[in-house]
Simulated scan of single mutants.
Amino acid sequence: MRRFYDIPSEVVRPGEPFDDDHRARRLAWVIGRPDGRHRGWETPEQAAARFQAGLDDLPGEVVVATHGMVLTAWLVARGVVAAGTEAGSFWTGLAFPDVVTTDR
């Protein structure tokens, strides 16, 4: 069984600087418009699949704490949130903390 610490990170994005562009860079990823700023990042589809695999290893009902990027990618992959602009609106509308309830 995988444990939460076996999952490498919220979204694999090696070397991402935390600078004035971080929100715009992350929003571009969320809406599916990666560019040179996302070199080496996993895709939203890869992040969603990794997140689902982690959930699949957990028995029964679960509560998951995560940042919003991987959650949004996962909800898009499941068809709960539409890709593109709707995904961006969902992600930017999340409060920290926020609660989202859905079936897995």
Rank of each mutant, 00 (worst) to 15 (best):
R13Y: 04
R39I: 03
A24D: 15
D20S: 11
L94R: 02
E42N: 00
P97H: 05
A82W: 09
F90S: 04
A49W: 03
S89M: 14
F51M: 01
R37T: 11
V12A: 05
P34Q: 12
T92H: 11
Q52S: 06
T102E: 01
D35A: 12
R3E: 13
D35N: 14
A24G: 10
R23E: 15
I7G: 14
R39Y: 00
V99G: 01
T43H: 03
R3M: 13
E16M: 08
L55E: 00
D19A: 04
V100D: 03
G68W: 08
V99E: 06
A87L: 04
G60Q: 09
A28P: 12
R2W: 12
E45G: 05
F51V: 01
W41F: 04
S89F: 13
V30D: 03
Q46R: 02
R78M: 06
V100S: 07
D21R: 07
E86A: 12
D20F: 04
H67P: 11
W74R: 08
A77T: 12
R39S: 14
V81G: 02
V80R: 03
H67I: 09
G54L: 00
G40F: 01
F51Y: 03
T102G: 02
D19V: 03
T92C: 07
R3S: 13
H67E: 13
H22P: 08
G68D: 10
T72W: 10
R37F: 01
V100W: 07
I31M: 11
D20Q: 09
L94G: 08
A82D: 14
P8F: 00
R33M: 07
M69Q: 15
R25A: 06
G88N: 06
G88Q: 08
T43L: 03
V63F: 04
W41I: 01
A87V: 06
Y5P: 15
P59D: 05
P8S: 07
